[in-house]
Amino acid sequence: MIPAGPIHRRLDSGNRAFWLLVVAVFGFRGLVSILGCCVVCVVGLRLVTVGPAALLTGGGLMLPAVMLAALLVATTGTAGVRLARSLYADRTLRRELRARTHPYDPYDPVAARFGLAGRVHVVTAEEPFAFTHGLWTPRVVLSTGLVRTAPPAELVAVLAHESAHVRSRDPLKVLVAQVLLAREFYLPALRHLSSRFVAGRELAADRAAAAHCGNRPLAGALLRVLEPPSWAATTPAAAMASCSNAATLDARITQLETGSEPPPQRTPRRLLLASTLVAVLVLAAAVDAAILVQQMCMRAM
């Protein structure tokens, strides 16, 4: 059992990382956007009235403004594409799952205990797995393979874990993180922050599950889902693992072993340095462009 410990009013490390990501992106972006909107207009106007040659005249005076405008347009584009793709994928997945799942009646009283009444569905598949999806009303999906093979205590552990994701609206947060990353793709430290968000949420959900039913059912459920079935025993599973998944799993097992959350992975200094450098460059371009816009306005008056 994970010791309760003193009650902290702080957010768990996953949500801390998520809100840090949101604040970092909107803070930085807000600053750049105020200047950027005027810059996009001015650059656009110059392009229309004078033609592309005008941007290179004046000793490259317009160059930072042009680059900033290009960056703003490009990143808004990538974020838009990402958002559209994620929303489409979410809608299709919901439709497909609706056709393939049925409500999980026998466990509805248990589900209700975790605030999941009517939100747990079962999908026909031999592999044992469970996940939470749905942006506005998150739902939990269990496979028939898991329901059939897992003892009741393990299913309770899985439901407790997933209910933590539902309560925190993690699918929606995942989508927001995806879109923010797609927009600020040139700041590599944010990607690291995002994986810390995912790992931190998993650890928090594990703590919620262990507090309800102890370590053993949770470890058992993890093992049941992870252990390769007999027909897959010939494949080296480790070869298919992505690094971040392996690190998250390692942290989850360590938390079960030690009873406390392992310290989050620090952002590598290299990423931090590169991101700061790029952010400073973009801000410098924005300030430079703003001064240019101001000068042009003064001249027009």
Partner: peptide, 27 residues
Amino acid sequence: HGDAAIVRFVEQVGADPDALRRLRRLV
């Protein structure tokens, strides 16, 4: 539809033998 916002209980592929051994010991 891997693009959709899904939070899995645990990623199915990717457990190395050492992780499985530690989980078994916990159980």
